[in-house]
Each structure stands twice: as structure tokens, then as C-alpha cells.
Design a protein around this nucleic acid. Sequence first.
DNA 1: CCGCGATCTGAAATCGTTACCAGGAAGGCC
DNA 2: GGCCTTCCTGGTAACGATTTCAGATCGCGG
Lengths: 353, 353
Amino acid sequence: MDRARGALAQRSKRITIHEVAEDAGVSKTSVSRYLGEERKLLSETLQTRIEASIARLGFRPDRIASSLRGRRTRLIGMVVADITNPYTVMMMHGVETACRRLGYTLVVCNTDRDTELERKHLEVLRAYSVEGLVINTLGQERETLQQLVEEGLPIVLVDRQVEGIDVLTVGLDNRQAIRLGLDHLAECGFEEVLYVTEPLAGISSRRERVEAFETQIQARSGQLTGALLTLDGDHQDQALISRLERLLRESTAPAVFCANAPVTLRVCQALDRLGALKDIGLIAIDEQDWSALVAGGITTLAQPTDAIGEAAMTALVQGGHDGGGEPSHRVFPATLKPRGSTTARAKPMHSNA
Amino acid sequence: MDRARGALAQRSKRITIHEVAEDAGVSKTSVSRYLGEERKLLSETLQTRIEASIARLGFRPDRIASSLRGRRTRLIGMVVADITNPYTVMMMHGVETACRRLGYTLVVCNTDRDTELERKHLEVLRAYSVEGLVINTLGQERETLQQLVEEGLPIVLVDRQVEGIDVLTVGLDNRQAIRLGLDHLAECGFEEVLYVTEPLAGISSRRERVEAFETQIQARSGQLTGALLTLDGDHQDQALISRLERLLRESTAPAVFCANAPVTLRVCQALDRLGALKDIGLIAIDEQDWSALVAGGITTLAQPTDAIGEAAMTALVQGGHDGGGEPSHRVFPATLKPRGSTTARAKPMHSNA
DNA sequence: CCGCGATCTGAAATCGTTACCAGGAAGGCC
DNA sequence: GGCCTTCCTGGTAACGATTTCAGATCGCGG
């Protein structure tokens, strides 16, 4: 009948706890108790009477009112840098599952890699009094984050940490992942490895991976040589293409190590344009659903994304105060998924030529 | 100091409108007016004094309280069937962008294709008094939806509609998409088309596509023959593999038409296992970021996902009451992206053999 | 000089729920 | 029987904002 006319719904007149109380002939308090944790305080009689009234009237408690007085919103905020990144989606999925299990509702905000937007989203989430925050930060909003921390809002940083912000962190064991990858490349007989990454831009996981790569390449100086290529913002990738061309020309056993899923995509596109998808070793951090289909199957270092997401939530509710003072930094190991892009190439193939 | 001890944050003592009012030497009413639409009612003097106090105290209005008494939560709920589906993610992105533009916050819930979960999520969103709902429904919860509609909650169904539920709908023009695809296949010289879909399960878009396919195959009976394969729930896909094998064996110019992104993935995996990724025509609804990389580039029928998402939100705020009584069903056309999987095969190739 | 509209301000009620505190009934113990 | 505990129940005041309505101030015409 009176549907919203040209505007969205306003909080409509609902059945309230008051009316239920009246109908059941009990006090509001009892109804409230019935709804909450204190149901066990009520006698059988009251419980059944209230239950009946609720059913008869079709009463549904109002979470907004409950949040206001009760000081619990049962809302968790999540801010992600790029919702189109498969890693992000998988990880969100883990967080979401955990939220459901724990009775929280998740509010997801996407910053589209825009730091200004990150700040705005954080402010909105704060305004809604979320009880905790899972953030995949761009790392530029230290001020804002610091403020939230000081207010005592539980925060977990995923994949990336921010210098000077002392909060729980969950992410990949980047050193282990890089080591695993390089071990594998060496085993397969590759000699020269090009590590391709997006601009570091103060993002800790990117930096850690690069550092691990450089350190470990040095440690294997007899076996592997390494080089680094940073992609720029525009997606022209002309530089990438010529770099790959040169690598293919100059090295006898070349391989590319992709720092994450978006990089992998761009590298594959570049190799595809060169018609060289199967002529070079390829290993990538992040498993994607198409990993097995391209370049004879891309060898990946899979992140346990579900576990990471769940761990983020777990860390949040536990508050990380297991006694120790320092907030914990939990890391998860990557799993190697060997595929054709490394196992079917390199030394053997090249020694044939 | 008093960080949450082992539990999430409770709504903390904040600066309230009351304290701002006191500090500025005005009434709560004036501060409230300053924050809302009625700022223009205030004199310059008051405005500057209030502004100063807000800044000095670091006051931030509490949206929860505001939602309770005012009757606007500025929350939009979104329920999606499968957050790992790239179509879903892209579309979410459109909705999110529109929300931001319109000053709403989006609460996303994923049902993981579980209809029971869909009901629960809808109930939670209702409990938070969202002002509108964007739903990518599984179609089983007619009852629940009907109830929400009757309560006057603005709802937009995306991609799928539900029989008997009279709400706004936004989605792909499935007939046009199928026609475009079949035209293209015919042009490329393919003769036998296998349409692969997930179980219809009462999902309108799946049904519409199948129906369009069958109708239009009939209309081209001289040119094309068609067949239908419905994938089952388990991801074994043994049936798919043998069906493809047979198709490759028996037809001189075979092609596969994938109903959506998840199907495309499974078909590609099956073809890959057969080593036949490049031996068959392939066209798919839904553009994915790896579309260009597999099978010489998969020809796709891209959905304008961003536009669909934005349209959903627009429809929501406009309430679809442009005068007419009937809620509108907006459809968007697909765009053909021809790639190697159709342009580099079929007739010519096979006539060579 | 009074009255009246226009403009600005504030006091109090209110949204639907939970927290706090007090009170009554039942049962056990001296 | 009196008193203290334990268990259950209800009244009332918040929570932090918005809304309603009434009052104050000012200017200006009659």
C-alpha cells in the first residue's frame, strides 16, 4: 500500500518488545531477557508465554535499538583494497564464514586502491560502531588507523602491516613462500629468475617478498641469478614486454616469478602477446581458478586464504591478549602447486636445443 | 589502556551531541540541526561556534543513535549467491560505487548458494533496518521475499527474478545475448552447438538462456544443430568430459556455448584434460580476466556488470515508481568479444582436414 | 506603540531496547 | 518462627541522536 514513494524505506512502525510484553502479560525486561543471553533466568512458564506472543505477533527485535542501548552492534567492518583481486575475495570468504559462525554481520567496504576512500570508509565504519575491523590497508592512513587503535577498537591487519601501528596481523609467510618457490625453480633447473611485482608503495607484503627474493637469490648465487622488475601503474606494460623479450633472448633457462595474482595476469598477457607463454618458466604467488589452464598450467604458491580469513576473525575476537603484551603477527605457509609452467621446461628442454 | 579484554569492543563512551552543545553554549537541537539537512536554519554565529566545538572535541555523530530516532539507517543490504563468481564481484562493485555516490553504506552477505543462509541473511538485514535490498537470489525463499515486499522494503532482484514476486529487476538481456552468440557461431561456420549450463534449479536467468537457446536453434535449423548438457552438482564432470569427447568425434564443426563463468571454467578444465582446448569452438557468457589467455582466447559475451550494478541501486532509490504501476524489468545487452576460440577454428580449419 | 510574520533557538518527548536496582516468593537453617 | 540465600520478576532510567512544538527576538507596517 504505502510503499516508499520515490525514496527508500524509512524504519517502519514495527511490533516492539513493549507490545509483546503486554500480550504475554509480562514486563519488557522479561521479554528482553528472553531474547538475550539471560533467557535461562526465566521460568518455563514465562518462556513459553513469551515465545507464543512473539510468534503470534510476528515480533522481530530491532538491532538498531538494541545496539544503541546494549552497546553491542554485532557488526564487523572489513576494508579491502581491491575487491576484484581473487586473493581478496577468497580471504573475505574466510572472514565471512567466521563472522557467521560467531554471530556477527560483516560490512565490507572496497577502497578501489584509493587511500582517501580508505579513510572515509574507516570513518563510516566507526560511525556505525563496528566492534572490530579487518583491514587490508593501503598503508597510507597511518594517522587514521592509529586513532582507531587508541580508541580501543580491535583491529586486524591482513596481508599488510603498517609501521608503527601495533596491531594484530595475519598474512602469508612471505619468506617461506619465496624460498619454496626458488627451491622449486632451482630444482627444475632454471638459472635466471625475473621477479615481477607491483610498485612497493609502502605495502609491507610486497616489500617483504622482494627483500626475501633478493636475500635468497644472493644465498644461491652459484645456482640462480635474479633480477627485479616493478610494473608501473598504467597497464601498458611495454616495459614488461621488452624485458621479457630480452630475458628470453639472453638466458638459457629463464623463469618469471610473479609476486601476486594481478601481476600474474599481466605477465601472462605480456607473454601471450609475445607468443611465449610456454617458452619460459613461470611461478606465481596466489592460486587462481585459471592457474591450471594457462601456459600448460601455472605453478603456484597457494595462500591458505580461507584459513587467513578465519584467523583474522579469530584474532579479532580473542583480542590477541593471550597473556603476552605484544600483539601477535600470525603467518601462514604457502603451498607449492607444481604445474607444467615449471616442471615441463627449463634445463632439460633447453639442453635439447 | 583498557583495550577490550578478550572480547570485541563495546560501544565506547563517545563525545555526544550533548557535550558539543554545552561546549558551544547552544542547545542539542542546534547541534543536531548543524549536522543534518537543516543547517541553513542556523545563524552564522551558531554555525561557526558549533563547528569549532566539534573540531575541538573531536566529535563524531553516532549513526546508530541517529538511525533509531531519525528513521534512516543509510544502510543498503546486498545478498549474493556466490561471492567467488566473477560476475557477482563485478556487479557488487557497481552497486558499491553507486552506494558511495548516494551516501549509503553497503552490507554484503554471501549465501554460498545455500538457501537457508539466504533466509537468515535477509532476516539479519531486516533486523538492521536496511533501507533497500539488492538480491541475487537462489529463488527458493519466495515466502521470505514476499514478506519483505509487503513490509514496503524496496527490493531489486539482480540477474534473477522470482515468479510471483513483483519487484524491480535488473539483468542481462538473455535472448539478445544468446542470439548474438549463435549468430557469431553461425558466421564462423560452426554447425553443432552444445550448450552447457548449471542445473536450472528454478533460477530464471539460467532458464531464460536455455529457452532462448532452444528457440533460436530451432529457428536456424538449416544452419545449426544444438544440444544441451546440464552439469551436476559434484565437480567430477565425468559426464561433461565424455560428452565433449563424443562431440569432437562426431561433429565436423563443433562448438560449446557456456552459460556463465563457472561453467566456462569447468568446460575449459574438461577440454584441457582432453587436450582439446583448441580443437573446438568455444563461446561463453561472462567476460573474465583470463578469457583472452585460454584456448587461444575465449570468445565471450560480456555483461555490462558495472552498469547492471549501478542500475540496481538507481532503481532502488527511485523506487521504480516513475508513474507506471508495474515494477520495471531492466535488461542490458551483452557485448560480443570475438577471440580465437571461435574465429580461428571451425569450417575453414575442418575443411582443411 | 502595538501587532504580526519571519527567523532563529531551545526544552522535552521519543525511537526500541538493555542495564540497574529493588522487591517478592520459596526454601533451608538455626 | 525468623532470617538469609537463591531465584525470578518488574519498574525505571538510560543509550545518543532527531523531531515537535513553543518561545524569543527582530523588523516593519499600520
